[in-house]
Design a binder for these strands. Structure first.
Lengths: 159, 159
DNA sequence: TATTGTTATACTCTATAACTATA
DNA sequence: TATAGTTATAGAGTATAACAATA
């Protein structure tokens, strides 16, 4: 009979904390790096009144004018209910509009405003600066390998 | 005078949604890949009653017995208040204990229980299988480059 | 029936301010 | 005063069920 509550031999405070086990896992490195990226991108987008999700949505709408909310949710890989507040926010900022589709009154055609296109251009430029800041030290070959690797991870889930 | 509310020429529903602008950004690929990793790891850890944060905390406590909550929060790169519920959860599961430190009654020495060490071993094995499933197609050289790149991103924030 | 968009809801992760008990 | 841990709270991201309008 084993006493689960018994502790292993206690030690006093270590001075240096080690990562040794976790460091072997790619997911661990991804999480910590992504936290940094997310925080920096949030600061980058703040001047435009955008956050990562509204920025992503705006860019996709500008590149695919007329798409529906279901299509946008699919492209962003998020659930439809969560997209509603994102579209609300972009519409309130007058960067996109929800246009009714005469041939199918169930769906909206999302279209950017002229202001939306302008803000998109500025935000994309800011995003490029942010990427250069964070990923500038990564050479092109590694960068391509990185994108391929990350894409293969995504493909694992799809298949 | 420009009318910000005016939309660009409207189009009807595109059949294929394109990523072209966003695909150029590493952060975009990171986010989408990380979502997949996070979801899969959550499923992987569920049988042990763990989630990503409690798992990470358990592993670090096992590798660094006796460390304080402040040290653990620092190692996990999270705020102290957020660690409290994590330690609560692990203590309720009887995987770690909060031991009082006689020489400084302000702090706790976190120590794993025997059950904690056993669960850690099983969860780490499950994590390894999860990593093999998601990152198996990535060869060793690319993997090393990936870790180095992700570490350099983290270093950008520290410096 | 099935689909689009929506509401309501809940859970997780993150971040800050302010408290307590010890030092 | 300063530090460790805590409480309370708020915001953002994600996920599911159920609804109204339309097809």
């Amino acid at each position: 009979m084993i006493d689960n509550k018994k502790t292993v031999p206690q030690k006093s405070q270590p001075t240096q904390i080690s990562d040794e086990t976790l460091r072997r896992f790619l997911g661990y490195h991804m999480k910590r790096a992504f936290n940094v990226v997310q925080a920096d991108l949030a600061i980058t987008l703040k001047p435009f009144g955008l956050r990562m999700l509204t920025y992503t949505a705006l860019v996709i709408v500008c590149d695919n004018p007329g798409l529906s909310q279901t299509q946008l949710a699919l492209a962003m890989d998020i659930e439809r209910p969560n997209l509603v507040v994102i579209v609300d926010e972009l519409e309130r900022l007058e960067l996109i509009v929800r246009d009714r589709v005469p041939t199918d009154r169930r769906l909206y055609a999302l279209n950017p405003t002229l202001a939306g296109v302008r803000v998109r251009d500025q935000a994309v430029a800011a995003d490029e600066a942010h990427e250069a800041r964070l990923f500038g030290q990564i050479d092109d070959a590694t960068r391509q390998a990185l994108v391929a690797a990350l894409s293969s991870v995504r493909a694992t889930a799809d298949g």
